[in-house]
Design a protein around this nucleic acid. Sequence first.
DNA 1: GTGCTTGCAAACGTTTTGCAGACTC
DNA 2: GAGTCTGCAAAACGTTTGCAAGCAC
Lengths: 140, 140
Amino acid sequence: MAPACVEDVLALVRARGGRASSPRRILLKVLFESGEHMSAEELARAVQQRAPEVHISTIYRNLEDLQRLGVVVHSHLGHGPATYQLASLAHAHLICELCGAVLEAPDGLFGELARSAKASLGFSIDPCHFAVFGRCSSCA
Amino acid sequence: MAPACVEDVLALVRARGGRASSPRRILLKVLFESGEHMSAEELARAVQQRAPEVHISTIYRNLEDLQRLGVVVHSHLGHGPATYQLASLAHAHLICELCGAVLEAPDGLFGELARSAKASLGFSIDPCHFAVFGRCSSCA
DNA sequence: GTGCTTGCAAACGTTTTGCAGACTC
DNA sequence: GAGTCTGCAAAACGTTTGCAAGCAC
């Protein structure tokens, strides 16, 4: 049921009373086309290549709206800015605290933790929101 | 080998060419006496009860030094300020993304994740640095 | 025309930095 | 006396907000 293209999302937006504005459309295009974990600033730069007058506060406001719609999620990969991506692409990350390397966690890596957190504490983890720090194989 | 009191740490500081200044001594006293995960601002307020002129930038600089010495660690428990504590007390946290509840993770909860991250990726996790988001039993 | 959305500027909260003076050793 | 450390002010950083004008419907 995840929206598969820009127009799908805009339909969702309109269904909630929102408008298909030009900055919104371009931001969505960037999100669908671009790589993962982009910061608000990187997204702004990408949008500004097609519409230079778009302000970063518009990016932040749109990202917030899209998160409220469940289309986008943000995650924290380290000490810098948050990164944003389509919710359908969310995945967990391991970050090396020494060299800064970003590893994508394979599906299932958090399965056992999720099960035991649920069993022993009743807590349902979301491994994607905050990255897990540590040391990569070359730095450890 | 973890320093067990203020004077132990100050000995370490001196061994590295540092000085046992009064703000440093008071900050350490607060860290040894206080509860866990205190923000820089909370630490500053506590220090200022004994020495009102101590500036928060001094707190930040001392926390950085103490982290370099391995005496203190900081962790990120959510979207607010970082929290600091004695390295010997470090432990992992689970944070409810809805109600903000902070759960201390029992020892061993991350054992299986640590083993499989090491085995499959060569990555040594540090579960204490970033909290794990999710939903607590009452919010899930 | 209604009201959502924008650009801009200004503020926010947290953390860092430059500097001249003060203190520890 | 050498060199670390301090308080203060100011800046840096990522992010949020107030406002009047502009645009989608």
